[in-house]
Amino acid sequence: MSQLKDLLERGKFVITAEVGPPKGADLREFKDIVRLLKGGVDALNVTDGQGASMKLSSLAGCVAILQEGAEPVMQMTGRDRNRIAIQSELLGAYALGVRNLLAITGDYPTLGDNPSAKPVYDLDSVGILLAASSLMEGRDLAGNPLKGEPPSFYLGATVNPNFEPLEIELIKMEKKIHAGARFFQTQAVYQIDIADRFMKEASRLNVKILIGIIPLRSVRSAHFVSKMIPGVKVPQGLIHRLESAPDPKLEGLRIAAELIRKVREHGLAHGIHIMAIGAERSIPLLLDML
């Protein structure tokens, strides 16, 4: 049984965080971070070659999290594997104790550190969800029966509240729901009215939604997220605060904490998803500010 599902269904305001596996086979630092975070967050997402960079696998990261007694969310992209590999990995993940899956299409290889890799995309995010749903009904994607008890995942997907035009993103979100998604972790949001506008449309869809938070670390990081994340524009007011703060990192955490408190107090979403992108060790401090 997925603990994440259980908590969300019981109505707890859930906090998840993203951890990136190392570019290497040494999991000691990764496990350190897991130990540091596991008390404060409800589940940990493990990225799958984020930014199309070759890293230790998401599945191995999830198993390490289970060994530390925490709850993993396996991120799975369609970039590197065809449907045979994806389904086979899903079965393996379930057998090893992974219960939550986040389906993602995946950044294009030319954006990453092995740019000459063959882009696979046999399944996009909707296709991965269809495959997982099919396995959960005891059949593979081609309709062949599985042996034994079928796996039972809590299926999730991503959505970007900043996307313009938002209508396309909402249509796609509905398709992901039809394909089996029950929870969503959103792309980073910096303005409460963006979250508001999105939730007004999305709340009728009857799924659990965790608003994405990327704490800013400096003026540069604010420009970076505005450049990298489709639709995101960090408001000028926040950039001024980072500029004039004696400790921009701390100020970035305060900004994130204010937004999280607003989301929680206004009952805007079912939780939040923190993506610290390399600064995972600062998450406990952020959680203390809530």
Binding site: P119, S125, I168, P230
Partner: peptide, 28 residues
């Protein structure tokens, strides 16, 4: 570039493609 069959990927930015920002996202 990804041959998406169910709508745009998460990378479409300002209606343009994540892989080649000079090109419009075909799903948009």
């Amino acid at each position: 570039p990804k041959g998406m069959v169910n709508g745009p990927c998460g990378g479409a930015k300002d209606e343009h493609c994540e892989v080649n920002p000079e090109q419009r996202c075909v799903w948009v």
